[in-house]
Design a protein around this nucleic acid. Sequence first.
DNA 1: CAGTGGTCTAGACCACCGA
DNA 2: CGGTGGTCTAGACCACTGG
Lengths: 228, 228
Amino acid sequence: MTTNLQNSSSEAIYRTLKSEILDLVIKPGQSLGENELCARFNVSRTPVRSVLARLRDGGLVNIIPYKGTFVTLLNYDDITQLIYMRVAVESMVLRDFVSIATPIIIEKLRYIIRKQKVLLETEFELQRFYDLDSQLHEVWFHTTKKDKLWKAIQRAQVNYSRFRMLDIMAAQSFPEIIQEHEAMFDMIERKDIPALQKAIEHHLYGGVRRLDGRIDAEFADYFQKGDL
Amino acid sequence: MTTNLQNSSSEAIYRTLKSEILDLVIKPGQSLGENELCARFNVSRTPVRSVLARLRDGGLVNIIPYKGTFVTLLNYDDITQLIYMRVAVESMVLRDFVSIATPIIIEKLRYIIRKQKVLLETEFELQRFYDLDSQLHEVWFHTTKKDKLWKAIQRAQVNYSRFRMLDIMAAQSFPEIIQEHEAMFDMIERKDIPALQKAIEHHLYGGVRRLDGRIDAEFADYFQKGDL
DNA sequence: CAGTGGTCTAGACCACCGA
DNA sequence: CGGTGGTCTAGACCACTGG
């Protein structure tokens, strides 16, 4: 009856490391030696290497032959280009969204925004806030039948996620983010597409705006120099 | 002096299979058993499995536990969503491109289009044609400093590539493609952004337009049913 | 039950880096 | 030269599928 699933230790190790990296528990630049991980998780090199390979392919880890394996540094250039893509795509998705959104779907948006507000007023959980944020964006992708595109984007922007986490965590950006969500909600109700497109651009570039000055100062260690 | 590089057989196996799949030499749906590959390339399961895992992550292969490994079928829904993304992104990139393109860069475009024409008039190589096509698009991403975005998109659209290959191969689409390129070239010279954005949309949806009726007929085996 | 993939161990040997 | 990753073999055992 029970359908086995996930007994592998690899999977557990992968998930552990991935979330530690995404949540910035393991800092960008930090070393992740194979032997060290073998010891920590009590397995041989095979599973450890397979995990590291997956993390590498996901852009979370940088394996330098004969030197070591390190959590990738954030790259400002990468991040801005991904934001550019999201602006392009979400402008178009939102345009399509307002023309087909039903009242029920609009209520769903309102509900998510409210949950975010409540979260902020009571206890605050970083990860939960981040998830609600994603859910909101997901609504318009889902409604316009662009689910797979949303997933493809998620896959492509792993590093933007870490940046966003840093933004939310370090820049106290929740109030501003919620405000922007509410503003966009109004525009959706009014079906004001031009305003909406400006707003989504402003919203997506929010992290850059907020952290800009601090990247060279406090968070310099987290970012690649030069940005070639 | 010589810097070793790529002695691994995995890498060779990976590249072989990948190009065979992308060039439709190995057909969508075809089986790729581990033992069969072990025999073909004369290696043990470890390298074979690592190759298959990479192909899976790239979306080229579908590993069904305890049943077998198969080249993924094309998915019409995936493809149209990726095209949607490209339309969104390239509309924006082209808008930025025309405002900063120098005469030298415009010449580069003309040069690529000419090469494509020459190729068509002399011998015809599918892969070469495809590459020139990519190069053209790459110019505007590169010029607008969106190289990384271009790479990210390439990674995300492996399956669209196979579709495009099918289009070029089966639909005799080269003349039309070249014509569209030339039309777009004119619009770039005239800096006619609205026309350009219509044109890129038309261009990117070209394959869908040309193959539409034939997907349920001749190429049904290559596509997923239902398209859920 | 035979076949196929899923997962892992143990160990070998190689290639490169840096002290 | 020691440490780290790169690559692979050989083989074991498990778990599910399908005839």
